[in-house]
Write a protein that binds this DNA or RNA. Structure first.
Length: 279
DNA sequence: CACTTCCTGCGC
DNA sequence: GCGCAGGAAGTG
């Protein structure tokens, strides 16, 4: 019943969550909105709750890591999981979970609950026709996200590539883990000035971003080689130590060249990478 | 540009 | 029992 993500929710996990929410909410009416934590109470004020209660949910859509609940009255509830947010579906009769921060009770006796250990998730209600999300770059999994597009996004960015990849205006939906993973797959030194990457490395990076996002960490992750002719290394099943190719592997041998993975800090965030094969 | 803030579970 | 981790907004 209660399930939480084993990893930070990044794009693939958000897309999955969106589907969960859509399946639970589609065509249903929200009968009650509850907040169980100071952070969700701040967002779900009595006025906001009143605008949600009684409304049918027409659709749940996604842009970057934002989920948008579109209501019958044309209000749109924006949900962002940040680090530990997740949906749980159950019965309205279920007791409140320790990590449950908000609950939407539905007209069919079901509930959709926001679980969020660290309580960083954000909820925001947009008035009809007034949905405003922060500036967001291209969706990395769109066919339109090509090396040419990424190159354009990197133009004029003098900072190191890995922190630049975390900027949602450059690419929408990459987090700290997959930014590091993408650099590893593309064999790019995360400290490289973004604008100095040539066409070849931008192409590798584009492919690497799509690759890490298209492959869920556990088991299925990394079924194909990063580049043609490269050795494929199967990751273990169900062992969280093996979820990532480079992230959180400080001191462990690089899966490609066996040199120890190092951890450095960029813009206050840890970066894991290989000094041997990432140039 | 980078650092700090918000929060709390979890690893040391 | 401390301090880190993380996304993104906010600040220097």
């Amino acid at each position: 019943m209660v399930h939480t993500f084993r990893a930070m929710p990044e794009l693939p996990e958000i897309e999955h969550a969106r589907r969960v929410a859509h399946d639970a909410l589609d065509g249903r009416r929200i009968t009650r909105v509850q907040a169980f934590h100071a952070t969700t109470r701040r967002a779900l004020t009595p006025t906001t709750r009143r605008r949600l209660e009684g409304q049918r949910v027409l659709a749940v859509t996604r842009r970057a890591k934002y989920q948008l609940l579109e209501l019958e009255n044309a209000y749109v509830l924006e949900v962002h999981f940040r680090m530990t947010g997740d949906w749980a579906v159950g019965s309205a009769a279920d007791p409140v979970d320790a990590l449950e921060r908000a609950r939407f009770t539905l007209d069919n006796g079901a509930r959709l609950s926001l679980l969020d250990g660290r309580a960083f998730a954000s909820l925001r209600l947009h008035a009809p026709g007034r949905v405003r999300l922060p500036p967001l770059g291209p969706e990395p999994l769109d066919a339109a996200f090509t090396p040419v597009v990424l190159a354009e996004q990197l133009r004029g960015r003098r900072g190191p590539i890995k922190p630049v990849l975390l900027d949602q205006r450059v690419v929408a939906g990459l987090g700290n883990i997959y930014a590091a993973e993408a650099c590893w797959v593309a064999r790019i030194d995360p400290r490289t000035a973004a604008h100095s990457l040539g066409a070849v490395r931008v192409a590798r990076l584009t492919a690497g971003i799509k690759h890490v996002l298209e492959h869920a960490p556990v088991g299925r992750y990394y079924q194909r080689p990063a580049t043609v002719g490269e050795r494929v290394v199967a990751l273990g099943e169900g062992n969280s130590d093996d979820d990532w190719r480079v992230y959180d592997r400080e001191g462990q041998p690089c899966l490609r060249c066996a040199r120890p993975i190092v951890r450095t800090v960029q813009s206050g965030r840890s970066t894991y990478w290989c000094r041997g094969c990432q140039r």
